[in-house]
Amino acid sequence: MKTNVYVLYGGKSVEHEVSLKSASAILNALDRSKFNVYPVYITKEGIWCNLGLLEEEIEDVKQLQIEPSTTVAKSIGEFLAKDFREGEKNIIFPAIHGINGEDGTIQGLLELLDVPYVGNEVLSSAAGMDKVIMRDIFARHGIPQTEYTSLRLHNWKEDEERCYQQVEEKIGYPCYIKPANSGSSVGISRAENRKELKKSFQEAFLYDCKIIIEREVIGREMQTSVIGNDYPKASVSGEFIMERPFFDYNAKYIDGTIIPVVPARLEPAVADNVREMAIKSFKVLNCYGLARVDIFVTDDNQVLVNEVNTMPGFTALSMTPVLWEATDGTTYAELIEWLIQLAFQRYQQKKSILYTRGVEE
């Protein structure tokens, strides 16, 4: 019997369009001789729409979008009652980036449904999505990183001057201001003075009620993919040739100005250190399945962890598949099947856990 793979994509997130690109590639790469493929579109309002069994390749992401005429709760109920083939061999592949998909919310629902799913679980997803929590965990475990501080929206509204002074005294200029929960560089900006800092706060608070401010790191950013469950492996690292001070959303997904270099230009000892730090970060956040760990390497070869992305972009040209192709020849289709196998393994591991007390004799 074939495995039913339900690919969730879209979502109520600023990364909605990025998710469509990832899903299109995943759907086309799944081997139809092994899998029944079901695209499940989640609209920007959060409504679930099952497109049915997919037999042909997706040529345009517009094919993955439909206009629903129902409510969020009703759409989820209809999917579970009518579209989800209960009793068969099923797995969910959440190809959703950002809020409401990568932050543990979808994962929590799937845990309640008791269905295997690809990628990180509730805890690692939530911790990886919240940049402040992630950095607090790194600090607790001695993982090297840049100096940072965080502020909440109500603090800023109550006393703007005090917030700006806190940043200037603790972090200084230049610094980066980011929404605590966001991805794909949405809402992120760089400030070199008070005027730019004010504007950056305004921008970041549009996307979250908590922001993080980080001291700028002068160095090259390495991206390393880590895949596995209890014994994760790290790929070779890759980097991008810098054409801007930092890669905003347009540079990553619209302008096409990013030039990847794989493997990254690192001395062997430094490359090993980066991979070891990537695996350590993966384990510290309790990750399972996959993650992409972004790490700065300074001119004197100091290694500083920037962040862990628990559901990185997943088109055939995204860094994760490119890194594994360069590491050991793993193809895009093989990578997807590897992640599905890991998901089933983790699901079986969790099934052995007792959730009720045993009967005492």
Rank of each mutant, 00 (worst) to 15 (best):
A23N: 00
L27D: 02
A29Y: 00
S33C: 10
F35Q: 04
N36C: 10
Y38D: 10
V40A: 12
Y41T: 00
Y41A: 00
Y41K: 02
C49L: 10
L51S: 09
E59M: 15
L64P: 01
T70M: 04
F79W: 14
F79K: 07
A81N: 12
D83Y: 13
I92M: 10
I92A: 10
I96P: 06
H97E: 03
H97N: 01
G108M: 06
L112G: 04
V118A: 01
G119K: 02
S124R: 11
D130Q: 08
M134L: 02
F138Q: 06
A139T: 12
E147N: 15
C163Q: 09
Q165N: 15
E169G: 03
Y173P: 05
P174W: 08
I177M: 08
R190L: 14
K195T: 15
A204Y: 05
K210L: 07
E214V: 14
V217G: 05
V226Y: 04
I227R: 00
P232V: 07
D255W: 13
V261K: 05
P263H: 00
A271S: 03
V274C: 02
V274D: 05
R275N: 09
N286D: 12
I295Q: 08
V305C: 01
V305F: 03
E307H: 11
V308A: 06
L317Q: 12
T320R: 09
Y332W: 09
Y332T: 14
E334M: 08
E337K: 13
I340P: 02
I340K: 01
R346F: 03
K351Q: 13
